[in-house]
Amino acid sequence: MIGSMQRQIARGMGQVRQTFLGVVARGGSKLLQLTGLAGEVLDETELVQQVGFSSHIPEGCRVVVVPLQGKTSRSVVIATDGAPIVVQVNKGETCIYDQFGHAIWLKEDGAHVKGGDLFVDDGNLHVPNGEVIDKKGSMQEMRDIYNDHTNGNTPKPNPQM
């Protein structure tokens, strides 16, 4: 009797698809095409991401695939790994990054931002293609005022800013 029940359970479990690893064949931020075990192809597999975070998953990444109700046709991707760019973090750190090298890195000494027109490195703010602006105006406006000012009959500042 117990042996018969075990065989029926085993047969039923054999019809239920378990969680498995796949590889992204066509990337995306909502739907992915995957290759699974033995070269099977899963089209339009939904990517489930945390609220507030959205990533475009590149081709070649490994993914964790969960077949809902044990059916491959109703699978969702719940985790990804193995992108071309991976940031290694130390104990206690968190990093949000993209595949272009931009990052927001939360470290023990504060937030570090890198990439694009703004990055902070070793406490220095770099804005190579933009302006530093506060409530009173921009750094360039401050330079322009300084460079043009005089004190009575004195000449303009030398050197200029």
Rank of each mutant, 00 (worst) to 15 (best):
N129P: 01
T94Y: 13
L125M: 15
G82W: 05
G110F: 10
I145H: 03
F53W: 10
L68H: 02
N151Q: 03
I57G: 00
T35S: 11
Q8Y: 01
K71C: 10
A79L: 06
R17A: 15
H102N: 15
S29Q: 13
D81W: 07
G27L: 14
P155A: 12
V65P: 00
S138F: 09
L68S: 05
E40C: 05
M1N: 00
L37K: 08
L21H: 00
I2W: 00
G14M: 07
R7C: 00
D109K: 12
Q160W: 01
V77R: 09
F119A: 01
V77A: 07
D144A: 13
S55E: 04
D122G: 06
D134K: 12
S4N: 05
T150Y: 02
T19L: 04
E108Q: 09
T72Q: 13
G3L: 06
N158V: 07
L42M: 13
G22P: 00
P84H: 14
R17N: 13
G82V: 07
M161L: 13
D122S: 11
C61Q: 02
D122W: 02
K114D: 01
G70L: 09
T80L: 05
I133L: 06
D81T: 06
G28C: 10
V41D: 03
I2S: 00
K114F: 11
C95A: 15
L106Q: 08
S54A: 13
